[in-house]
Amino acid sequence: MEAGGTDAFKKSGGAPVSIPVETKAVGGTFEDRNWYLGVGSHMRNVSGNVSVVPDAYGQPKITVDYQVNVWDRYNWDAGKETPIGPVTIKDTDMARLHTVGLAQEFDMQGSSSAKQHDLGGAGAQAVPAGDPGRDGTRKDPARGEEENR
């Protein structure tokens, strides 16, 4: 990423450049039991932008803005089942509830808030660690407010 940004910066004659970036989508399944029961398997990727601008000495200064994207179709698959306490929930039973209108399959999607990493000058070696975020609790007082969804 850095080499492409500095190459584009040099090619532009030192003018600011902006390069959109996006990873390939990969699938995964949450290991945390609550997330597994709430979402299960999902697709995710990271999208963003690499900006290279001249610093005070005309040297390239690189910044990456990015966000994580997650999506899936919440549905029930024949042959699958999930134990929850002493009960085993079969996907075929849940699918039947959907068919008769007592449950609903739905599309799930979301994106993290935008994050930024300053990679420094062209010779910078390390990416600083980002904010680790919440610890998985529901103690965020702003959670549920429209601008935080």
Rank of each mutant, 00 (worst) to 15 (best):
M1D: 14
E2D: 05
E2F: 07
A3E: 15
G4Q: 13
D7G: 07
G13M: 06
G13K: 09
A15Q: 11
A15C: 06
P16C: 00
V17Y: 02
S18A: 05
S18M: 06
S18Q: 04
S18V: 00
V21H: 03
E22M: 03
K24A: 14
A25P: 08
V26K: 09
V26Y: 08
F30V: 02
F30P: 03
E31L: 11
D32N: 09
N34E: 10
N34L: 10
W35R: 05
W35E: 12
Y36T: 11
Y36H: 12
L37I: 13
G38D: 03
V39Y: 03
G40S: 00
S41M: 05
H42M: 10
S47K: 09
G48A: 01
V50L: 08
V53D: 10
P54Q: 03
Y57S: 15
G58F: 02
Q59S: 11
P60S: 01
K61R: 15
K61L: 13
K61F: 11
D65A: 09
Y66W: 06
Q67V: 05
Q67E: 07
Q67F: 08
V70R: 00
D72G: 08
D72I: 09
D72M: 11
G79I: 01
G79Q: 02
T82H: 12
I84F: 01
G85K: 03
G85I: 02
I89A: 10
D93G: 04
D93T: 04
A95N: 03
A95H: 01
R96F: 14
R96Q: 15
L97G: 01
T99H: 10
V100N: 10
A103H: 01
Q104V: 12
D107R: 04
M108Y: 15
Q109L: 09
G110K: 00
S111K: 12
S113A: 13
A114D: 12
A114Q: 14
K115T: 05
H117R: 13
H117S: 14
D118V: 08
D118F: 01
G123N: 15
A124E: 11
Q125R: 04
A126G: 09
A126N: 13
P128L: 08
A129K: 12
G130E: 02
P132N: 08
R134P: 14
R134F: 12
D135Q: 11
G136I: 02
G136E: 05
G136N: 00
G136C: 03
R138K: 09
P141K: 07
E147T: 11
R149H: 04
R149G: 12
R149F: 06
